[in-house]
């Protein structure tokens, strides 16, 4: 292992590069020089040059909330299909019938939920 000259040097250069970048980032995070003339405006949140008004954490956008609810349900359901897709060649057509019924049964409430969600957008 020691005889391989070039990979060793390459590894050292790579290691030095990575650790230098990491060191610079860590040093810059913790050894930041004090601002000689701090102004109160400097640490204010950015609002296009205006004076910041009110709390920064504003309200959620409620009109897309139905999509979040659908996502919580259907993202998990999409995972179930991976077990089927992985073993599709072994299962063949007979083993796939329950999964195909499962997909069709899930698509009907999805269509209705989308119908409702698209109407809620008109709030």
């Amino acid at each position: 292992m020691v005889a391989q000259g070039i990979p060793e040097i390459g590894a050292y250069i790579g290691f030095l590069f990575v650790s230098t970048v990491a060191l610079v980032i860590v040093l810059r995070l913790f050894i930041t020089p004090k601002d000689p003339r701090p102004t109160p405006e400097k640490k204010k949140p950015f609002e296009s040059g205006q004076i910041a008004v009110g709390p920064g954490r504003t309200r959620f956008i409620i009109q897309y909330y139905p999509y979040l609810l659908m996502f919580v349900v259907y993202d998990v359901i999409a995972m179930f299909l991976f077990a089927w897709g992985l073993n599709l060649r072994a299962l063949g057509a007979p083993g796939s019938v329950p999964v195909l019924v499962f997909i069709v049964v899930l698509l009907i409430p999805l269509g209705y939920a989308l119908h409702l969600a698209n109407h809620r957008e008109n709030w």
Partner: peptide, 13 residues
């Protein structure tokens, strides 16, 4: 959310 500013919060949402 942690920035406590309006543009970052809208971007996060």
């Amino acid at each position: 959310w942690s920035a406590n500013s309006k543009f970052p919060f809208i971007g996060g949402l």
